[in-house]
Design a protein around this nucleic acid. Structure first.
Lengths: 141, 141
DNA sequence: CAGTATCCTGTTAGATACTG
DNA sequence: CAGTATCTAACAGGATACTG
């Protein structure tokens, strides 16, 4: 396992005596921790679905709205703005009448989709196992 | 890109006429969509950090509490329960006095950490780029 | 030690109405 | 068409006090 700056060696300055002093601490500092700062961002309710929709190519606002089933206009706007701000999505306005706005993945957007696919692929494979685990847990609790 | 059941071909039954009828729809159905159902679960504030802390081996409640910096007792309990329910974590009570409770990754827990590392590794690599993108966005808006 | 139980606040996201 | 603006309900999560 690689050692990252948000995972620092435990500086045993606390008074608690432990038999295991080799374990690392895991920080969540919002500014400097990629986990909270990057993963948590795309871990919201709609980001991944929008990114996956855009993998198939540039698309317009209302087309996305109908393809990302269940999303509200408000959340589509807001999540697209967030994704644009992060650098995953480009927004292009075509000054026609009526106006046309296209969203497409940046190179970084196409890039982050790869590890996301790994994760989603894992999730698909283990989805049944997870559902069984939940069911078993709920039955014994 | 693989075609999953949460990504279905667009059934063009809406009245809107589109020049691109080949794009897929992306569902978010909570019960059947692994994205919402698995990814969103571990996308909360503490799950990934706890999983990463447990990669180093089984650990006890209060040790975890000090290692996962900033987490409250309430959220540690709650997130551990969720992770246990999903099947990522095993909880073992040792009936000593005082009681000792150990948490450790299940085989599935050790397994999901792999794609998570891929994602976090990506995040580390691109963290600077993302921060610059945010700054640029904020300056022009 | 390893939690529960309460209370409380900020955020998230849906619904609805309106606009250049 | 592609959004804003506003209101509100639900939820996530922190602080604190208490317990087997």
């Amino acid at each position: 396992m690689q050692e990252a700056y948000y995972v620092a060696k435990s500086i045993r300055k606390t008074k608690t005596v432990s038999t295991e002093s080799t374990k690392k601490r895991v920080f969540h500092n919002s500014d400097d921790c990629p986990i909270r700062n990057v993963v948590a961002q795309i871990g919201d309710k709609w980001s991944v679905l929008i990114l996956f929709a855009l993998v198939e190519g540039a698309d317009r606002f209302n087309s996305l709205k109908s393809r990302v089933v269940g999303i509200s206009q408000r959340m589509l706007t807001q999540t697209l703005r967030d994704l644009e701000r992060e650098g995953y999505v480009n927004r292009t306005v075509y000054p026609e009448v009526p106006v046309k706005v296209e969203y497409e993945l940046t190179s970084m957007g196409r890039d982050i989709v790869k590890p996301l696919y790994q994760l989603v692929s894992w999730a698909e494979t283990h989805h049944g196992e997870i559902k069984r685990s939940r069911k078993a847990y709920d039955e014994r609790n």
